[in-house]
Design a protein around this nucleic acid. Structure first.
Lengths: 350, 350
DNA sequence: CTGAAAGCGCTTACAG
DNA sequence: CTGAAAGCGCTTACAG
């Protein structure tokens, strides 16, 4: 079977000829510009439909200095949290005529600002995205944000990043969500509640701990420093944290893990040690990512609207540069939900 | 703080002027074309470096009718299998000066060929990728493959798809890997071995079952039809399969789940039912995706080189259309590995 | 081995 | 409200 050659597609000129107008008018209709008679507008639309005309992004890009491309800067790790955000972002891009591309940025620890900037320049100059979307662990990286700003690229960031940061931010209210989650444990009757931190360079770690501490204090409970253990947002650090906490002379009856992956590790460590969840130990996570319902018992957690975070981030980013509001700052906070599942219960010896 | 305007970048003309040559010569050097004196070539390279010149993909696209963009067509599901392949694909694209973009295709069940073709035309005409990468569950979809062919777009597919399919295929030897995996269970002394199928429209399901059956027969064992249960490649179908198998009057001592997610569900179901893995039941998975080491006991499985599958797929795709070998067929088979972990052991009452 | 010219398919000023 | 001209930054024939 011979390979077919690429079918030749209609150009703007063809549409103009068929509609009996100039190509400029076609362009205006396509870009939803005002000042076109309805009659002409309809003629053009008919011609577009008849010819199945789709404008060439290359040509639009070249002349208009736009690429209709948004780049998601990722870290090399498997994360269903990122995955879900990416999903929402793709949906929004498709809806708005943009394309979502993925780039991988290697670890930038120990890199100078100039090196980071050079790396980003290399990455962005080739395909010239109209905007960049930053997620964990890069969303909170100030050097990256600043370098991108110097390169004149619009950025949207997702998650609880620096409060003083400018640009577009999309997130949920981590502080209050953490309070809610902690209150749930307190209301069940828990007093010795442990906390598993995430990566220390992520603001999420700090905000969630702040909410946790606040709720504990408000309830007249103290946070035992020995029950605050480190983690790195992944399954195995959750297991380690679980082992540490269970080995404590006076172990906690409940644990707040600052994300779901670690909570899953914790539940696994408990189960392996013969500690029943939630009978002997209650565990809560954070995110409501895929793992939350791919474990037993299913995880009580905070639901982040991950798809929506991705969608809203893209919409705001595009809106921002379409209205030439480059450099504008805004902060969008979406609703979260507390999701009660099966890893929490009242403590046995209350 | 005022937003900086996009910095103006060097153009090919600037490089040509600095190097004292024509822009055509610069173009030749940049595209690694022959017929340029080394002296001039070096002058040009110096100028490129000095000006930090990066060619505009838009301009190259428009004139050259190439987009330097490869599109990964995804299904809306969270899968660390796809995630890992995507990772490898991004790496390869970055290395070769291409960009990987993601598109989501909604479910196409009950759609006619013409509808599918129209959908794909819409999707591809806007950004005109130079090639498309297809993974599960679309890699094996003949209508998609055929529609893309009619649209003149090069395609690479990953996984065990139809043997008669033309185009570029990258996969591992599923048949022999499945035999190996089954032999492992047989060598441990298992005789009643169950099999959990995946989606029936995926060739992986059939090839893996074929390998399983073959190995059973070769060892003089029969496949009990009652121990062959359906699944859909996800965690919850694995749990269901586990419950079904454990409820059997004469339950199996080992299970071959045709991917890791289902194996994880199976282990979870067993654990919940008080059936110890691997003490009372051995379980093997397939893929070695992230979940394999995010569970306890860790999963014995077949390691698919997912990153490499993604990389090799992209490399072959680009190589194919760069050499105008559009329409050429080839099949690349990468090595797999049997990974012995902790979910398999000899049966108790052998 | 090297270069001057034409043109990819749009959008951006500019005129009317 | 509409259009003729110029040009975005490259690559593709074509000449020498």
């Amino acid at each position: 079977m011979a390979g077919e050659s690429k079918p030749k597609t209609a150009k703007m000129k063809d549409v103009a000829d068929l509609a009996g107008v100039s190509i400029k008018t076609v362009s205006r209709v396509l870009n939803n510009e005002p000042h076109v008679q309805d009659k002409l507008r309809n003629k053009v639309k008919d011609a577009v439909a008849k010819l199945e005309y789709v404008p060439s992004q290359s040509a639009r890009s070249l002349r208009g200095n736009k690429s209709y491309n948004i780049n998601l800067l990722c870290h090399a790790s498997d994360s269903s949290y990122i995955n879900a955000i990416q999903f929402g972002a793709v949906i929004a891009c498709q809806k708005l005529g943009y394309q979502l591309s993925i780039s991988l940025l290697e670890d930038l620890h120990n890199h100078s600002f100039d090196e980071i900037k050079a790396e980003l320049e290399q990455l962005t100059h080739q395909h010239r995205p109209d905007g960049i979307m930053l997620v964990a662990p890069y969303a909170g990286n100030r050097m990256i944000a600043f370098a991108l700003k110097e390169l004149g690229i619009d950025v949207v960031r997702i998650g609880p990043v620096d409060l003083t940061a400018d640009g577009i931010l999309v997130e949920i209210d981590d502080y209050n969500a953490s309070i809610e989650l902690t209150k749930h444990l307190i209301d069940l009757g828990h007093k010795r509640i442990a906390f598993v931190r995430g990566l220390e360079n992520q603001r999420a770690t700090h905000v969630r701990f702040e909410g946790f501490s606040m709720a504990m204090n408000a309830a007249g409970l103290t946070v035992d420093p020995e029950l605050v253990v480190p983690g790195s947002f992944d399954f195995s650090s959750g297991m380690t944290a679980g082992q540490t906490l269970l080995a404590h002379a006076n172990p906690p009856t409940a644990v707040f893990a600052s994300n779901d992956d670690m909570a899953a590790g914790l539940v696994t460590a408990a189960t392996m040690a013969g500690v029943s969840v939630p009978g002997d130990l209650s565990v809560v996570g954070y995110d409501d990512s895929a793992v939350a319902t791919r474990m037993r018992p299913e995880l009580t957690t905070i639901h982040q609207p991950l798809h929506e975070l991705g969608e809203v981030a893209i919409e705001n980013l595009i809106d921002s540069f379409q209205h030439k509001r480059t450099g504008s700052s805004r902060r969008v906070v979406l609703d979260h939900n507390f999701v009660l599942r099966d890893t929490t219960a009242a403590p046995k010896n209350k």
